[in-house]
Amino acid sequence: MSSCAPNDAQFRIQNPMAEFLRMERMPHIWCPGCGIGSVVTSMAEAIKNGGHDMDKIAVVSGIGCTGRVAGYVKFDSFHTTHGRAIPFATGLKLANPELKVIVFSGDGDLFSIGGNHFIHAARRNMDLLVICVNNFTYGMTGGQMTPTTPTTANASTTPYGNYEYPFSLPFLADAAGATYVARWTSLNARNITDSISEALNRKGFSFIEVITPCTTLYQRRNRLGDGIDAMQYYHDDADIQHGADTRTVDIGFQGKLKTGKFVDRQKPTYLDAVNTHYANVIGDDYQLYGKTPPEKQAEEEAKRAAAAAAEQADGLEAEYIDEPAECGGDDA
């Protein structure tokens, strides 16, 4: 009836996150009120809801607090060097195109040291989902300024306030060629889940920014209170504006936060472009990892035929079972 506190071992097994997390590594190192954990749950939820083959999902992180995500999730997961998650993910995806590769990293990692890789992967429309946990600071190293720290905010390397101009990440991603761009705050846990679901079901370079509290450093140094206060700020000042012009979504210090899905457009992915181009130029001799276009086509047709046969079998079965249960008893 009421909440029960199972023992720790049971909790690790019965927790619905058990299939997504390396439970033997829990509890994690993140601070009280840190938003990273809930974004991880949203990702797991999206993967579960989408029915994706979890063996074909790879998670790549860089360095920092968010960089630790790769070490906690139970997928093929890679904790790389600072800023290099995207090129690593690029190699992984291109070497094994059947993978769904998710890059999960922080604002400092992806946009300072890794900024060049980000814009180029976006430009190529590399088939990656990049989730950026943006807490406006370098957490692991002690609260330094990042390329997203709002002007005037205090950081340990801008102890008298930040005099630089931050990146507006959706604008940057949009300008660089990302084909899906969304922003949420960590209070919008369901929207984050939906956005990740949507991104996992599409091809191309998808970018989701999640504004999260860093209670220990950003919140504390700027006297903004604790995690609940950050959530309150998101609650009061965030405004969902789907399709907003990304030029208008920049973030000032404790200013208005425009959230929503800003960009969703179709463009051939890098690998699609490679395959189409070479199939045109080189013809039937073209092959990727040992398969020529006719071979690939035959393979795809066989797969489609198998899927169609399975669907037909399923359909018959479903029809048969559904009949008595149609409409349920309540309405009758």
Binding site: V60, D76, F78, T80, T81, R84, P87, F88, A89, T90, G91, L92, K93, L94, A95, N96, L99
Partner: peptide, 9 residues
């Protein structure tokens, strides 16, 4: 870096 990704791919 892409090489390391490629190798594990």
């Amino acid at each position: 870096t892409a090489l390391i990704g490629g190798a594990w791919g």
